[in-house]
């Protein structure tokens, strides 16, 4: 892929109020890039899941958001990065309903279903990075960015 990156912003994830801010940032970026309402909602929901994992399981970290442009297509790449305990068994963690913290265990697997591309890198003891990418869907929405 030779996606030209436009700009990357970096937002801390260290508290509940940071989560709200991160969601807000992604919602706005998604609207500006041209995601329709359903796509915006999906990306923001995936963001909410992954950022909360960064905070709750990863002990805090940050998000990097990059606007992508490939030919005429535009997209967003989001990385959720922490230096926490890491995930010993990623495959297990990606299983629907698996949770070590009394959650529904739908965060990771659900987020993956909500976006186009999903990668999880984690080394036990060194932290976790989850990166998701989504592109403006084929048919441009006439109501781009409408709330």
């Amino acid at each position: 892929m030779h996606a030209r990156t436009a700009s990357t912003s970096r937002l801390p994830i260290t508290s509940d109020s940071d989560l709200a801010w991160v969601r807000q940032h992604v919602r706005q970026a998604a609207a500006e890039v041209g995601f329709n309402l359903v796509q915006q909602t999906k990306l923001v929901t995936a963001t909410s899941e992954l950022a909360r994992n960064t905070l709750v399981h990863g002990g805090g970290g940050h998000m990097e958001a990059t606007v992508l442009r490939e030919g005429v297509t535009r997209g967003i790449r989001l990385s959720f990065i922490d230096g926490g305990p890491g995930i010993a068994d990623p495959e297990l963690a990606m299983t629907d309903g698996y949770s070590t913290g009394g959650g529904l265990g739908m965060g990771l697997s659900g987020a993956k279903r909500l976006v186009a591309e999903f990668t999880l890198e984690s080394r036990p003891g060194q932290g976790t990075t989850v990166t998701v990418t989504d592109w403006v869907s084929g048919v441009p929405s006439p109501r781009t960015g409408a709330p």
Binding site: V38, D96, G110, A111, R113, L114
Partner: peptide
């Protein structure tokens, strides 16, 4: 809302 309904379903809840 419709967008939220779709998202919830895809999330797997």
């Amino acid at each position: 809302r419709p967008a939220i309904a779709q998202t919830i379903v895809q999330l797997g809840i």
